Amino acid sequence: MSKIKPSIVLVHGSWADGTSWQHIIPLLIQAGYNVTAVQNPLISLPDDIATTKRAIDSQPGPVVAVGHSYGGAIITGAAVGSPQVKALVYIAGWALAPGDSISQLIGKYPSPPLVTAIVPDAGGFLYIEREKFHEVFTHDVSIAEAQVLAVTQKPAASITFEQSVESAAWQTIPSWYLLAQEDRAINPELQRFMASRIDAKVTELEASHVPYISRPREVANLIIEAASSAVE
């Protein structure tokens, strides 16, 4: 008897939306998976957790939750207590512990180049300066694609970097972590610390902060590995 494949819920990070998974989605669908890419508002961590939790709860069976960057913080909270979520996959993601905030963790390691490229708008939402976007965020992506990503970036409320989770799903759910060795947005050593802390199965890639865009086949393979393990 063939096993039911889990649904895969993809969670974007700051300065992006669900369409940023456009290189990953076809690969997962071709492999026979039901895929949902969440559209989070990026107005607060609790709001984004609630939005993602609704997406998880609406799936028909087991789920693999995948979070890129800030999306890692979201799945850490959204999957808590869910009997459906069988695996967590962090793509250069923030694997927060209870009480952690992104700002606190950034301060524990030398600041990445991204920090100097973030600017606020009149409402306190944060952007990456367009002229620095390719260099600090997507340096292994074509300039043309990076320009589209920079122009369409979704601003993030500054409060999202100060908020924490009360419980962490990785404490009870098996985790995978893709570490981006050339990341200029999250210090790779900080990624290594978080991956070790959650006892994740780690894969390292020579990639920028967006390996799911620059190295989609490798990222899709990691997600499929986690999904296959989830139903064993």
Results as ranks from 00 to 15, higher is better:
residue 70 Y to V: 05
residue 92 A to E: 12
residue 142 S to M: 05
residue 229 S to R: 13
residue 19 T to L: 02
residue 144 A to D: 14
residue 56 I to C: 06
residue 99 G to V: 04
residue 204 E to G: 11
residue 18 G to I: 02
residue 35 V to K: 00
residue 28 L to M: 08
residue 23 H to P: 00
residue 123 G to D: 15
residue 112 P to W: 06
residue 81 G to N: 08
residue 164 S to K: 03
residue 128 I to C: 02
residue 96 L to A: 12
residue 216 P to M: 10
residue 128 I to R: 01
residue 45 L to K: 04
residue 2 S to C: 00
residue 125 F to M: 15
residue 12 H to D: 02
residue 212 Y to A: 05
residue 116 T to C: 02
residue 221 N to H: 10
residue 130 R to P: 03
residue 140 D to E: 13
residue 94 W to D: 10
residue 22 Q to K: 13
residue 115 V to W: 05
residue 158 S to K: 11
residue 225 E to K: 13
residue 77 G to D: 07
residue 112 P to D: 07
residue 45 L to S: 11
residue 82 S to K: 09
residue 66 V to K: 08
residue 22 Q to N: 12
residue 115 V to S: 15
residue 158 S to W: 03
residue 75 I to G: 11
residue 109 Y to T: 07
residue 189 E to N: 15
residue 6 P to N: 12
residue 65 A to M: 11
residue 177 Y to A: 01
residue 102 I to W: 10
residue 78 A to K: 04
residue 143 I to V: 14
residue 106 I to H: 07
residue 166 E to T: 14
residue 137 F to Y: 14
residue 88 L to N: 07
residue 113 P to M: 14
residue 83 P to R: 09
residue 70 Y to N: 04
residue 28 L to K: 03
residue 40 N to A: 13
residue 161 F to K: 04
residue 139 H to V: 01
residue 158 S to P: 00
residue 162 E to T: 04
residue 52 T to H: 07
residue 137 F to I: 10
residue 22 Q to L: 05
residue 134 H to D: 04
residue 208 S to E: 07
residue 103 S to I: 04
residue 202 V to G: 02
residue 7 S to H: 09
residue 111 S to T: 14
residue 208 S to R: 03
residue 23 H to V: 01
residue 69 S to K: 06
residue 212 Y to R: 02
residue 147 Q to W: 01
residue 31 A to V: 06
residue 101 S to L: 06
residue 92 A to T: 14
residue 74 I to Q: 04
residue 81 G to Y: 09
residue 4 I to C: 01
residue 36 T to W: 00
residue 25 I to P: 00
residue 187 N to C: 09
residue 139 H to Q: 15
residue 212 Y to I: 06
residue 87 A to M: 15
residue 182 E to S: 05
residue 213 I to P: 00
residue 162 E to L: 13
residue 196 S to F: 01
residue 44 S to E: 05
residue 131 E to D: 15
residue 59 Q to E: 12
residue 69 S to E: 07
residue 227 A to W: 04
residue 172 T to W: 07
residue 161 F to N: 05
